[in-house]
Amino acid sequence: MASSPDVPSVGNTPENPGNGSPSEVPQAAATAAGGERRGRVRARRAAVMAVPATLVAAGLAVLTAQGALGVQFAVSGMPFTVTATELNGTGFEQFGGLDNMAEGSPNAGDSGGQVLVVTSAIKNATLDHLCQSVDLGGTNLLITAGSGATKVTASGLTTDSTELSGDAAFNNIEIGNDASTLTKAGVKGPIGVFSQQADTVHIGNLRQTNYATTAGVFKLPGLKLRFSDSGC
């Protein structure tokens, strides 16, 4: 399989250099390119891999956009915005914390590389009209999903946010727990920190500025990834 594709393009692939290649063509070319023999990419051979790889990549993108395939996210170190018209979740926890940026991160500014954040963890969440944007300096990378009939679902969603706004409704909320005793979403905070947890959560018009987000599995039906001048 590996050797077959270069056979048909015999025109200029002589195996051994001395086998009397057509005289005029190489002579002229040799003077042009300095006359040395270099390794080089054969287009037809590269296409043998490029075509299936493109097909598989397209397949993955389509499956993700249909919500059939879950993808994982782990982002941090740069602020990004997440909005959704509606968030419904079961198993909700929230506590304060401190995020450390990577050593010498250009985003650190005068903050000394530390940001005070609110960590929210939701065990299972569905989001309507999810929009996520990262400011790349001048242009924004925009990811939208879940605008159609099927919603975005995420499990094991953990976000560290500096700003969180929306219309929230909690069910069975316990406020003022110690963050190290949380049970609802399976994440434990540092000991001695204020926290709250609830069985279910509903947030309308959610808007978050996040520094880190991780999700075990994200299903993104109707995924669109594009660059845009304005964020979410």
């Binding site: 063509v25 070319a29 390119a33 023999r37 270099r38 390794g39 990419v41 054969r42 490029a50």
Partner: peptide, 24 residues
């Protein structure tokens, strides 16, 4: 990554120097 892998896969050592389409 995929572009890089395709280039590496399609690469062959010891080829004739490239002839531009115009010279050909």
């Amino acid at each position: 990554g995929v572009t890089g892998c395709c280039l590496a896969f399609g690469w062959l050592p010891d080829q004739e120097p490239r002839v531009s389409r115009r010279t050909r």
